[in-house]
């Protein structure tokens, strides 16, 4: 965990309401797949937690969707402006359990954290299949990133405007060694029901601090109470307790 001033070197719209931002600082440490940053935004009191899409020493990329005033303001940040960012937050995915042909399941802005994960898994020589789900073709992004890394990619859209019509769970492959997923909660619940192996889920929750102080983002698990920002955002399938 570090507090850093990062320079914005890119902030471009890549799909309907979806932006890719690149942030740089030579002192920046490399982050793990599934970790997140917490960004101070002018005019907003609380920081906004956003998962990391790609990370190298010195630079990181986030991909975010404009959903409210905070992300709206973030989308207007210009190149060369700086942002106050807490980096290296959360536990991240555990790659050691992937097996030799893991499956990645991403929905909407749940896709970005899987990009860095896919890169790391490919570097470790794993055969990666990615199923990426979107509402409609206009909101789709990221397919090329996965393909260029040598992943097998399937895209689904709820309205059938691109790829397979339906949800990611309508395009699950027959065979995979393990899975990693991130997306909206209804999708995560469907993934939980329809997957045949163990796997890891990345969760979203409204946060106060993002580093474990306020207990704003707590959840109940099989192994006790956990803070999404600290013991999460990644939980293993076996420890998840769905509420409602």
């Amino acid at each position: 965990m570090e507090q850093r001033i990062l320079k914005v070197t890119d902030n471009t719209r890549i799909a309907d309401r979806v932006y890719r931002m690149v942030l740089e600082n030579p002192a920046l440490e490399e982050m793990k797949p599934g970790q997140f940053v917490n960004i101070r935004i002018d005019g907003q009191y609380l920081r906004r937690p956003i998962s990391v899409c790609d990370s190298d020493p010195g630079s990181l990329t986030i991909v975010y969707k404009v959903v409210g005033r905070g992300t709206e303001a973030l989308s207007r940040v210009k190149k060369r402006e700086t942002l106050d960012v807490l980096t290296g937050l959360g536990n991240g995915y555990d790659l050691s359990k992937a097996g030799d042909h893991p499956l990645l399941l991403g929905g909407g802005v749940g896709v970005p954290p899987l990009v860095l994960l896919a890169r790391k898994l490919r570097e470790a020589g794993r055969a990666v299949t990615a199923v990426l789900g979107f509402n409609t073709a206009a909101e789709a992004f990221g397919q090329t990133d996965f393909r260029e890394m040598g992943c097998r990619v399937t895209v689904t859209t709820a309205d059938g405007s691109l790829g397979v019509r339906g949800f990611v769970t309508d395009a699950l492959p027959e065979d995979y060694s393990y899975f990693y997923t991130c997306g909206p909660e209804p999708m995560l619940k469907a993934v939980y029901r329809k997957t045949k192996t163990s796997g890891q889920f990345s969760f979203e929750e409204r946060m106060g601090c993002g580093f474990g102080a306020c207990m704003g983002c707590s959840c109940k698990t099989v192994t006790g109470y956990k803070r999404i920002c600290r013991e999460g955002p990644v939980l293993e399938k076996e420890e998840i307790l769905w509420e409602d």
Binding site: Y45, L46, C217
Partner: peptide
Amino acid sequence: KGTTREPRFGNPTPRIAECPAGMINAVGLQ
């Protein structure tokens, strides 16, 4: 952190939100 006789989880989430020049919480003494 506010301590009680028995352990507490607190209230269901979401329990944090943005406000003009501030925030609102309903953690509920976890």
